[in-house]
């Protein structure tokens, strides 16, 4: 079985919102119709987005760290939003695990958004149907695109390659390896939703240097030439003869 998903590296994300704009651009121009905006250039603008980048501050001044956190539908393996849908408009595809909404069946009752603990679903207040990330399902299978472009728009846009895309059920895929080897984790594991999207944690690059690595016990190259010349019998620390 296939489960397509995104793996987002929080260590790399710089919070530029390129994935947000790229997502909006691709999905608002698609067959499913525009993702409505209201007062986009006015005070109090609002609109429908599949993807948002949020920013959190971890810790207390001066020991703080800024974490940029892209958030979209996690395409849960046990999606709580799907069984509650009364019409079957909300469904999870068997072939690739993408959770989708059939906009022609959705009655706009918003019950699925109540059933999503992540707030991943947003109603389109013009079309009056529930919308959410489709993993660019209209793009990743498009044979008219060159193969390297058959990825979600957000993945294509990310300038730091913080977003990986692939099948997390294939142990040899790039995303599975990233989850396995770089400590990938799921959000809110306490609800048993088994999100397919994973996040890679912030990692600090640390170099451990011991005292004796900084202070040499000997001067092996004798560059200074001012050291007292030891006797022939005496060994030197670097095991070369001292004469």
């Amino acid at each position: 079985m296939t489960q397509l998903a995104l793996v987002i590296d929080l260590n790399v994300c710089v919070g530029c919102h390129a994935c947000v704009t790229s997502c909006k651009e691709w999905n608002t121009s698609g067959e499913a119709g525009a993702m409505s905006d209201f007062r986009p250039y006015d005070a109090d603008p609002t609109g429908t987005f599949f993807n948002r980048v949020q920013t959190f501050e971890v810790g207390e001044f001066p020991n703080t760290e800024t974490v940029h956190f892209p958030k979209s539908c996690l395409h849960c393996e046990e999606p709580p939003c799907v069984p509650v849908c009364p019409t079957g408009a909300s469904y999870k595809r068997k072939e690739d695990g993408i959770v989708l909404v059939d906009y022609d069946k959705c009655i706009g009752c918003k019950y699925c958004s109540w059933a999503c603990p992540y707030g991943a679903r947003e109603i389109d207040e013009k079309q009056k149907v529930m919308k959410k990330c489709t993993l660019c399902v209209d793009r990743i299978y498009d044979k008219t695109l060159p193969e390297r472009d058959r990825k979600p728009a957000c993945v294509m846009a990310c300038p730091t390659s913080a977003r990986l895309f692939g099948d997390i059920h294939d142990p040899e895929s790039e995303v599975s390896k990233a989850i396995r080897e770089q400590g990938g984790y799921a959000l809110m594991p306490e609800w048993g939703t088994h999100p397919a999207n994973h996040y890679l944690p912030r990692r600090k690059t640390q170099l451990r240097i011991h005292e004796d690595e900084l202070v040499r016990a000997d001067n092996p190259l004798k560059i200074d030439g001012k050291l007292p010349k030891p006797a022939k019998q005496e060994p030197s620390l670097d095991d070369v003869t001292s004469w």
Binding site: H17, V20, F49, R52, V53, Q54, T55, F56, E57, V58, G59, E60, T66, V67, F69, K71, Y185, A186, L187, M188, P189, E190, Y199, P201, R202
Partner: peptide
């Protein structure tokens, strides 16, 4: 648990 960072002090600065 929401963002998966083990720290008692996390504050949101922007919601996107």
């Amino acid at each position: 648990t929401a963002i998966g960072i083990k720290h008692p002090r996390i504050a949101q600065k922007a919601q996107g």
